[in-house]
Design a binder for these strands. Structure first.
Lengths: 277, 277
DNA sequence: CAGTGGTCTAGACCACGCT
DNA sequence: GCGTGGTCTAGACCACTGT
């Protein structure tokens, strides 16, 4: 068969993807709208199915569209983002409309955010403890090197490790693996999975043990999800995860380590305040 | 020829990808190592080229491997990550080994971090101002709605907008679009691109105008890069970007807005400290 | 049932990096 | 020139979603 030379030097599947991207940007294909079917695209662009599928795969990997088996391909809807701010660590149990915490920024108006690609909006979405559903599994393990380092203890120190899957309103929101040094929680209500979710979270938990958390350190990274994570969190192709490695401090002492909180990147924004000396 | 057990129902290209992932995790294919060529894989797994290519495309989109035209496919090397902490906003000009800033966490030891996929390490990498190269373009524009909102001014307010491409040691590190209200910087050295990079950064710049920055708010998000961003920042497939929307405050007043700092997700980790009341 | 996307094959020509 | 991956074609069968 005769291979059609690529007109502009640009591969045909890029041309198709470019055109579809253009329509998405221009609003001709708004979020949620179906893309033309593969057969339509084959006709419209005079390309083979493989080429058309390559275009769509590209758009998928860029996070522009999602594909549903047997139904079609759709422009990725923009999800409302959960905003995680410092106030989630405030001592008072959260109420849907709690005023900002003492160390919060000077009440900046909630900005409308851009996702860098077009339509966007942000929801200052608070989820009450009661709306959470929770899968959890607790176990006792010796500290691996990374976790020991974060705690500032010897590797091998016995830990209580808790693994959580948070859901809110039926939608998986995040995974989290969080540890306490076993000695500090053994035979306390904190070590009992039945007491989760604990109102006020880990800080309240530690408080019940007489440990007063004075600060939290968060190390934020981003990467593509593992296959497991994508499945558990219902993450479509083209969407990264944000990971947080967290240390809770009581003075100089590390009292909790979350060795990777994993959150879908299309459902969250992290809000930080830095005081400048 | 190695015969891979056939978990029936699982598509062949997934089986191939699973096996390659396994080898990567197991260390049989360490970072930087070449994957078997497509023809080898075709033989080893008794699959057509299309199927083998689909496996590799999957691994690429997951960030496990990168492909170089005419050379081969390689396990993605783990890059040292630049750690961005609050100290980058400290008043004193940074020196490679400056002690932590006043509001910093209680000197936690630099943790060794996990990338969630295997081998990993972190470099507490400081880049002196002198190591920066910088592309910049300044222009004067009326504030769009999002930026006006972040500034707390009316849309249309004249802004000095600066676009930067930072490189360090030849490697592109981040894009940034940052604005001042034009009235506050007109006819000052700050408005002259020739004075970039300005030692001490935007805070020192504002200081030279008699404006004392008291705090910085950062809104962190993650998404896949646009085609432009991927090209400019040399981002391979399967690597997301971290974006930061930043407001600099002088008291209650917003004095600078960075309406999207874009950083490759495989080259950075953000380090935040939250004081708990 | 018809329409959608998912998987797979076999073959072809091309552009690139290296030796 | 050889080996690598990049692009493209044409056809086939399948699983899933809707009516």
């Amino acid at each position: 068969m005769i291979v059609v030379p690529t007109p502009a030097g640009r591969p045909r599947y890029h041309q198709v993807a470019d055109e579809l991207r253009r329509r998405i940007r221009a609003g001709a294909l708004p979020p949620g709208a179906p893309l033309p079917s593969e057969s339509s695209l084959m006709q419209e662009f005079t390309a083979s199915r493989g080429t058309v599928r390559q275009s769509v795969a590209l758009l998928r990997s860029e996070g522009h569209v999602i594909t549903e088996k047997g139904r079609g391909t759709y422009v990725r809807p923009v999800l409302p983002k959960r905003r995680l701010g410092a106030d989630r660590y405030a001592s008072a149990p959260s109420t849907p409309s709690t005023p900002p915490s003492p160390s919060a920024p000077p009440s900046p108006s909630a900005p409308s955010t851009r996702d860098g690609r077009g339509t966007s909006f942000t929801l200052d979405q608070r989820i009450e403890w009661s709306a959470y559903q929770l899968d959890r599994s607790f176990d006792e393990v010796p500290a691996d090197e990374a976790t020991a380092d974060l705690f500032g203890v010897e590797p091998g120190t016995p830990l209580l490790r808790r693994h959580f899957v948070f859901r809110a309103h039926g939608v998986p929101q995040q995974l989290s693996t969080s540890s306490y040094v076993l000695d500090t929680v053994r035979d306390t209500p904190v070590a009992d999975p039945a007491n989760e979710p604990w109102p006020g979270g880990n800080i309240a938990q530690l408080r019940s043990l007489g440990i007063r958390v004075t600060g939290v350190r968060e190390l934020v990274r981003s990467r593509m999800p593992t296959a497991d994570e994508a499945a558990t969190l219902h993450i479509p192709a083209g969407v990264p995860v944000v990971t947080i490695t967290r240390q809770m401090f009581a003075g100089d002492r590390v009292v909790e380590v979350a060795n990777d909180i994993v959150i879908p990147g299309d459902r969250v924004e992290l809000d930080y305040w830095i005081a400048v000396a």
